[in-house]
Amino acid sequence: MNVLVCIKRVPMVGGKIAVTADAQSVETRLLGFTVSPHEECAVEEAVRIVELRGGAVSVLTLGPPDAADQLRDAVAVGAGNPILLETDGREWGPIATAGAIVDAVRRHESSGEPYDLILFGNEAADTGDYQVGVRVAHELGRPCVTGIKHLEISDVAVRARREFRGGDELFELNLPAVVTVKEGINLPRYPSLPGRMRAKKAVVEQSTPERHDDPVHLQALRVPVVERQRAEILGTGLEAVPALVALLEQLGVLS
């Protein structure tokens, strides 16, 4: 079973986002970077599939040279074959990103390594476009389902479950297929010491993709104005408890 996981490098924004002076990107000078959460789970899922059924996990990202760090994070928890589609750091929209991934998949598959399953995160934490996986699937002529929180795999098919209105709906897809997953599908492991060593030594395959046209033009990024004011402080420590009880009564939740 050959599984390809596509991940995205995103800043760790914590409690507040700031925008650069030209309003074209998030100010990241003081921030660390991580793998977008849904994709962290996609990596874990791919590693579990291969542990169970044998095969290999490849991991791919499109981004600046530093995005190799996130590929190494994936290698540290069990992925192999890190592939970097290197950009100059400008943002690539979903059409351009999907186009570059399709080109890379075709290149790898023509050299004899077809991917049985390609995994994505449901949406990236930063841009939230919800579509790169679907576009890649169409271009490659493979079935696709999104938002998956449970996956079972056989030699020829996947059974995939996702939440819908308080229940689960089940999809069955023939392989090769494309699946986008959500956080909660698993609890990603921490890297082991040997994993970290492997990540350090891993050779990242680097190439510069061709940029496909994208007719969506970013004008500006801005932080929304939050209307809510600072909270009314009911008190400090135990002395605040009577005020808290009174508030709960006033809000009508102590019936």
Binding site: D129, Y130, Q131, G133, R135, A137, E163, F164
Partner: peptide
């Protein structure tokens, strides 16, 4: 989930951009 998914497919069928949220 369904709205974003269906519109992503519409984008893929037509080659047109899809803008979410």
């Amino acid at each position: 989930d369904r709205g974003n998914e269906v519109m992503a497919h519409v984008g893929a069928f037509t080659g047109l951009p899809m803008v979410a949220n």
